[in-house]
Design a protein around this nucleic acid. Sequence first.
DNA 1: CTTGAAGCTATAGTTGCTAGAGACATTAGG
DNA 2: CCTAATGTCTCTAGCAACTATAGCTTCAAG
Lengths: 146, 146
Amino acid sequence: MLTIGKLGEAAGVKVPTIRYYEQIGLLPEAERSSGNQRLYGRKAMKRLAFIRHARDLGFTLEAIRDLLSLSDNPDQSCAAADAIARSQLVEVESRLARLTALKAELERMVVQCAGGKIADCRVIEVLGDHSLCATDHRHPETEATQ
Amino acid sequence: MLTIGKLGEAAGVKVPTIRYYEQIGLLPEAERSSGNQRLYGRKAMKRLAFIRHARDLGFTLEAIRDLLSLSDNPDQSCAAADAIARSQLVEVESRLARLTALKAELERMVVQCAGGKIADCRVIEVLGDHSLCATDHRHPETEATQ
DNA sequence: CTTGAAGCTATAGTTGCTAGAGACATTAGG
DNA sequence: CCTAATGTCTCTAGCAACTATAGCTTCAAG
Ligand SMILES: [Zn+2]
Ligand SMILES: [Zn+2]
Ligand SMILES: [Zn+2]
Ligand SMILES: [Zn+2]
């Protein structure tokens, strides 16, 4: 049985984050010691590692909630889980496309600036006028955190 | 003189967002009509377009605040503005690198899954165990919104 | 002149945490 | 056994950058 600090260390998750996951119901309420401190076993450890890894792969907590509840009944078809992963892939691809365009525009800006006064600064000029951009980089669809 | 709705439409910014920008001091307090409604002229329009475009390029509101105050005195050197843009470029590059790794892992996951039961689902399996990943995609540095 | 859209303020909610305050628990050293 | 340091507890508030709601007033069209 691990204390919350040890668990956090083992899983690479900060202590308040673990409590937060419990609070929003991603982790079950932990057992408590005689002195009311949380205690975790192997199962909680695996669940937290799953959450952490899925977060690292950019899944939202809502998606992770679904994935966890799917993984809790192993006899079902994995179609729903695969769909979540595929939609996360689509999301990542679209962010990638957008960031690639952003990078190109930012590079253009900084390269084109001759480094004089603000009045002649290409960075400031381009920021004020999207028609100076080479690509249409604008905020296409819904954007998520990260 | 435009009302807030017309301004928002023209600049592609939602009305509450404009009020929010005013509230946090990114936009100056607008003139008001006799009936206390906000009115905007050409200058506010340009300023809002600048903000919107910079947001589209991923700059934070803090960075935009600095860029705006730089652009307000055109005789200064543009070094500071260029530095902000370059650091935004670095930020975008690092997010791009991370997303590229994520995409690779997500693709591996969905491709490797044969589509049976959850118990045999490669997606669920990989999510539970980072050592099954081909790359080290983990949360490298500070991460920003978007 | 009436009605519906658009505007106003103020407050609270979103996501995924993170930081603080103040009180209790545990552990290591002397 | 006592003490000091560290860890944990709950609760609340804060971060970015908005978005939504409620309950009002004002405006523009018919
Ligand atoms: Zn410049
Ligand atoms: Zn542009
Ligand atoms: Zn599967
Ligand atoms: Zn991994």
